[in-house]
């Protein structure tokens, strides 16, 4: 039974990830006074895209086709590392959070190369901006995880979230709050949400992530959209594990609680998007530097504790 649990967790993540964008969209629709698209819209989209015949630009090479596939594999592998409901993941080892960050880097590397393979100015622009923001967001995210490692005295994600309990919040609330804020900014930036990027924008010049995938179609686009949902799940579960550090010990209860909080995180993203305008492109680095500062402050507080 103990071997089955991590697999069930993984399966749950793989199946439920496309739900999160649906929740975000419903929350945004609620704020805008619309009815909004169905909750399961992304599932319908994925099913449709997988059935479609793709169109490939004559400029592209195999890189364009391999990019989405390898990117999806990297994100799925990252999901294997991420703990679920404060329980060890399928793959948990010392320094696994470093591995997680570099897997995200691999996914980004593939996406950017696939975008550059089209020779399109728009996609080059998106790729350039993606890389620019990564340079600012990655160190902050990394420092945040390092601070978490220092708070918990653990070197694996499973270990960190295993020891993180309500008591940790009682003794180290400022540190953990700062870290949660930093991770939330990382979530917004890495998943191209408002205020860093707007997933609903309709002008190529203003897009970042959407610009990179303009030429993808059919199953390749399905892989990209599904990968994006997995990435959102990854960051969401990071925050959910931060703010829900209660472990009843009963697996089913913990898992149900965790899923509820995940929906809450998605709702929080939806609210953030509804109440905020998108930042000017030149201001986004400052937001990411703020996240970095939060992480650094958390680390300093922790070392002074």
């Amino acid at each position: 039974m103990e071997i089955v649990k991590p697999l069930v967790q993984l399966l749950a993540a793989l199946l439920l990830a496309p739900l999160l964008p649906g929740v975000i969209n419903r929350v945004k629709a609620f704020f805008a006074g619309r009815r909004g698209q169905p909750l399961l819209q992304l599932y319908y989209d994925l099913a449709k895209l997988l059935r479609k015949t793709p169109v490939y630009s004559r400029t592209t090479t195999w890189v364009f086709k391999a990019g989405p596939a390898i990117g999806l594999a990297a994100l799925a592998a990252a999901l294997l590392v991420m703990p679920f409901a404060g329980r060890p993941s399928a793959l948990s080892f010392d320094g696994d959070f470093v591995y997680l960050i570099y897997l995200l880097g691999l996914a980004r590397f593939c996406a950017v190369l696939a975008a550059l393979d089209t020779g399109s100015a728009f996609e080059g622009m998106g790729a350039s901006r993606e890389m620019q923001f990564a340079v600012f967001s990655e160190p902050g995210f990394f420092l945040g995880l390092a601070a978490l490692a220092a708070v918990t005295g653990q070197r694996s994600l499973g270990g960190m979230f295993g020891v993180l309990t309500g008591d940790s919040w009682r003794v180290a609330a400022p540190v953990l709050a700062l870290l949660t804020a930093s991770f939330f900014i990382a979530l917004l930036a890495e998943n191209s949400r408002v205020p860093a990027d707007d997933p609903n924008t309709h002008l190529e010049l203003t897009m970042i992530h959407e610009a990179m995938i303009l030429d993808h179609s059919g199953p390749d686009l399905a892989y990209i959209l599904y990968g994006a949902a997995l990435k959102l799940w990854l960051f969401g579960s990071l925050i959910a594990s931060m703010v829900l550090p209660s472990h009843s010990g009963a697996w089913a209860r913990d898992a149900a609680m965790f899923l509820l909080v995940m929906l809450g995180v998605a709702a929080a993203v939806g609210v953030t998007e509804s109440v905020m305008a998108r930042l000017r492109l030149t201001k986004v680095p400052y937001m990411l530097i703020t996240a970095f500062a939060f992480s650094a402050l958390a680390l300093i507080f922790q070392m002074g504790r």
Partner: peptide, 16 residues
């Protein structure tokens, strides 16, 4: 991906 593309002839076009 190969399974999804089975029996389909991807079209070639210019970059958007």
């Amino acid at each position: 991906r190969a399974l999804a593309l089975k029996g389909k002839q991807p079209a070639a076009a210019g970059t958007w």
